[in-house]
Write a protein that binds this DNA or RNA. Sequence first.
DNA 1: TGACCATATGAGCATACGCTCACATGTTCA
DNA 2: TGAACATGTGAGCGTATGCTCATATGGTCA
Lengths: 124, 124
Amino acid sequence: MSIRSHVHIAARERLLDDQSAAALAETFKVLGDPTRVRILDALARAETPVCDLADVLGLSQSAVSHQLRLLRSMRLVRSRRDGRHIYYVVDDDHIAKLFKQGLNHVQERREPREPREPREPREP
Amino acid sequence: MSIRSHVHIAARERLLDDQSAAALAETFKVLGDPTRVRILDALARAETPVCDLADVLGLSQSAVSHQLRLLRSMRLVRSRRDGRHIYYVVDDDHIAKLFKQGLNHVQERREPREPREPREPREP
DNA sequence: TGACCATATGAGCATACGCTCACATGTTCA
DNA sequence: TGAACATGTGAGCGTATGCTCATATGGTCA
C-alpha cells in the first residue's frame, strides 16, 4: 500500500456519515426556534410549572405544552408533578453548554472581524 | 430597598431578552438541517469548489448553491474564485466548536444515563 | 467570438412547523 | 361528587423551508 499525499482525499474519507449528520441536525433543529430557546433558557434557570412558563414568556398554555412535549421526547427536559402543577426543568447539561457556546457566538457576532458589507436589513 | 429572598424571581429577571433568543435560535436553525450540516462538515475539513461539494454529498448543484448562499449570508462560510471554480470554506471557528459540542452530545446520547424507555422508532 | 464549464438565482411545489381552537384528561377541595 | 384549576392533545391553518427545473451570469479556451 503506497503512501498517498492527497490530503484532500484523506480528509474527505472521514466525512460525517448520514446518520450522524441527521442526528446532529436534529439536535440543533430543536434549538433553532425562539420559543424553545426561551423555554429552555427559563427551565435552565429554575424548575417551573407550565402555567408560569406560559405567563412569563407571554405564550398560550397550549403552545407551551406542545413545545414541552417535543422537548420531553428529545429528553431535553424532565417533568415532575406536584399537586395539580407539573414542574419542568432542563435535563441535559450538554444543551446548557451548547447554549452558552451559541450565545458566545452570537455576542462576538456583534463586532465583525472584517468590515465587508453592512448588516442586511430584516426584510429582503 | 429591602433584600428579597425569592430566588426564583431573581433568576427570572435575568431571562434571555427576545432579541438574544431570536439571534440564538437563528444561529442554531442554520445548523438544524442535515444538508447544511454535511456541507459545513465538508467545508470545515477542506476548501472545496461547489461542483465537488455537490458530487461528494450526492446533491444537485442548485441545491448546494442555494444552501451556500444562506451560509454565506450568515457569514458561516467564505468563498474565493479560482478560474471557473469557486472554493468555499468554513469562516467561523465558533461554528466548528458548536459542531464538536453537538457531536459530543449526540454521541453521549447513544448510552442513556437512566434506562427509562426504549428509543422511539423512526416512524410514529 | 462562441462553445463550454461552473455557479447563481427566481419560480413553483410538496412538506414541515408553530400556533390557535376545542376539548380530553387529571388533580384538588368544598 | 362536582366545580375549578392545570395540563395534554388532535385538527386545522398560515407560513417557512428545501428541493427541482429552467435559465441567467461569469469565466476559460480553442
